[in-house]
Design a protein around this nucleic acid. Sequence first.
DNA 1: AAAGCGGGGCG
DNA 2: CGCCCAGCTTT
Length: 215
Amino acid sequence: MFDPQHAFVDPLLAWYERNGRHDLPWREPERTPFELLLAEILLQRTTAEAVAGAYRPFAARYPTPETVAVATTDEIRTHVAPLGLVKRAAYLRRCASEILARHSGDVPREYPELVNLHGVGEYTARSVLIHVTGLGIAAVDTNVKRLLSRFFDVNPDRNRIAVLADALTPSTRSADFQHAMLDFAAEVCTAGSPACSSCPLRGSCESSEEQFTPR
DNA sequence: AAAGCGGGGCG
DNA sequence: CGCCCAGCTTT
């Protein structure tokens, strides 16, 4: 009977402190909730590397809901186009308008109101809560789903993974833990050919072929 | 429940 | 060339 805290959470956080992507611009602590929400929408089905290259000018051009709402969709589209999923330009504009109309220009701090914003689904709403309010929950994206389903050898059912991820999350370090899962899955437990042979969680991973290797 | 969106990176 | 990426809206 193994302890997931000792086998997974602690070593993952240790890996993250040394190897995490601590330079991603939207992780800067002075980022506003709206700047964070912008990043989350740009990151949907888009590599962090790609967003990292476009984020600073984007956030500087659209620092508030007002600046997005008064911009034309075409102008926003020129910024989103290099990232793909260009419909997000319209999502962003409508989302900003909704924040102005419903929430006086402030990003809401409650899940039901967040998830009702255009372009904001369960993942994005949870991520905003984690970063803005420090709520001790997890947000399940493609990385978290892959990492947890492999390590714990469970069916990658979204709801199952969500329950597991929430249970694993350290209540006072949810943002660090979220970043740790994302970075680890993107750099070690990758989709195509994971680096199992050099994985620091190898010994406890239920998907590892070497877990029973003697000596 | 399934389709559609999308450019860019990588093997 | 095919697969994948901090998902979500629409049908």
